[in-house]
Simulated assay, not measured.
Amino acid sequence: MFYGSMVAIITPFTAEGTFDEESYRQLIEFQIENGTDVIVPCGTTGESATLNYEEHNQVIKTCIEQVNKRVPVIAGTGSNATAEAIEISQHAKEMGADGILLVSPYYNKPSQEGLFQHYKAIAENVALPQVLYNVPGRTGMNMTAATTIRLAEFDNIVAIKEASGDLTQASEIIANAGDKIDVLSGDDFLTLPLMACGAKGVISVTANILPKEVKSMVKSIQNGQWDEARKQHLNLLDVHQAMFIESNPVPVKTSASLMGKCQADVRLPLVSMGDATLEKLKTVLSKHQLI
């Protein structure tokens, strides 16, 4: 249902710390003009953790309005409280989202059965296509392949964004439930190997600044042009790595700022990049002629 090059889009702020709607709309146009297949607002890269309810809804609404049905919008609506995730997800549905992205409950550290019941409750209460999001480095726990395979039985659970970094785990999901649930790469640097195993695309950080190039690599894979895809993958590797030299989304937002697309401002507890890492980032961006 959702496939190809998808961007986990940043949320720009003004110098005063408020949502910069005009810059956001321009960022969305930049994505669509360069072939991005799906826009994903209010994910980790969109700083959902520091948006209040009103802002969260405003960002999703603005995205849906600006996209205007040209590509699908998957709204980030996850929470570590099941009832809260249901409420936010229902609101996204009312606003017109095409799907929702649901990060695994963080901080609580539920059991695998708790994870299953969490996602089951959302699936039963929100009539939208749902993308699970497994990111152990952020949540403190891993959702196993077995749990994902159980959840694949729900018709409206259509995909999982796998950011565990575990190719074996992702492959196990594809091998046992690939006809019921799509796997999407949650790590840019693993897009090629995961798609070689049968994943359907990537929800990308790098696409914020190189949407055309990420889309081109994904298209090469889809067309079976493996030599070209490998070349593109290796060419982008240093950019993918640079996007995580500090906590995401600080590097990618700083990159977008250096490119003149928005302010670099992030919200506490995130802070601006340190001088040493900033110089490393600039070196990579210069190499790719982004600045």
Score class of each variant (00 low, 15 high):
Ile122Gln: 03
Thr62Ser: 12
Gln241Tyr: 08
Lys261Arg: 14
Val38Leu: 13
Gly201Ile: 03
Arg230Ser: 05
Gln169Phe: 02
Gly4His: 09
Ala127Phe: 01
Ile173Gln: 02
Glu153Pro: 04
Lys180Glu: 01
Gly201Leu: 04
Val73Ile: 14
Thr82Met: 14
Ala159Phe: 02
Cys197Thr: 03
Arg70Met: 07
Phe116Asn: 06
Ile291Tyr: 10
Val135Ala: 01
Gly178Leu: 00
Asn80Ala: 02
Ala163Cys: 11
Pro129Phe: 08
Glu33Lys: 15
Thr18Pro: 06
Val239Cys: 12
Lys231Val: 02
Asp20Asn: 05
Lys200Ser: 07
Ala123Gln: 00
Lys282Trp: 01
Ala92Gly: 05
Ala256Glu: 12
Ala163Glu: 06
Gly260Lys: 12
Arg25Tyr: 14
Pro251Tyr: 12
Gly76Ser: 00
Met217Phe: 15
Ala8Ile: 07
Cys63Arg: 03
Gly99Pro: 05
Val126Gln: 14
Ala229Tyr: 13
Pro251Lys: 04
Arg230Tyr: 02
Cys262Trp: 07
Thr44Tyr: 12
Asn176Ile: 05
Met217Thr: 09
Glu22Gln: 09
Ile209Phe: 13
Gly46Asp: 01
Val131Ile: 06
Thr14Asp: 02
Val284Cys: 13
Tyr24Cys: 12
Val239Glu: 03
Met143Gln: 09
Ala229Lys: 15
Phe154Cys: 00
Gly137Pro: 04
Met1Lys: 06
Ala146Asp: 06
Ser272Phe: 10
Phe13His: 09
Ile9Cys: 01
Asn142Cys: 06
Ile39Ser: 06
Ala8Asp: 03
Ser23Cys: 12
Phe2Met: 00
Val218Asp: 06
Lys253Ser: 08
Gly17Gln: 03
His56Tyr: 14
Gly4Phe: 00
Ser216Phe: 12
Ser104Gly: 03
Ile74Gly: 00
Asn142Ala: 02
Ile173Glu: 01
Ala146Val: 08
Asn134Asp: 05
Met1Thr: 11
Pro249Cys: 05
Ile88Ala: 09
Arg25Glu: 11
Ser257Asp: 09
Ile203Leu: 01
Leu285Asp: 11
Gly76Gln: 10
Glu87Gly: 01
Met95Asn: 02
Asp227Cys: 08
Asn34His: 15
Gln112Val: 07
Gln222Asn: 11
Ala276Glu: 15
Leu278Tyr: 11
Asp275Glu: 14
Ala229Ile: 12
His56Pro: 07
Gly43Trp: 10
Ser272Asn: 13
Leu234Ala: 11
Gly17Thr: 07
Pro105Glu: 06
Val59His: 13
Val218His: 10
Ser48Cys: 08
Gln112Tyr: 09
Lys282Ser: 09
Ala81Met: 13
His56Arg: 14
Val252Arg: 07
Leu210Ala: 15
Ser257Trp: 04
Leu290Arg: 10
Met1Asn: 04
Leu234Met: 12
Ser185Pro: 07
Asp37Lys: 13
Pro269Arg: 10
Thr139Arg: 00
Glu21Ile: 10
Ser286Phe: 11
Gly186Ile: 04
Asn34Val: 09
Lys161Cys: 02
Val103Tyr: 00
Asp187Leu: 02
Gly96Trp: 05
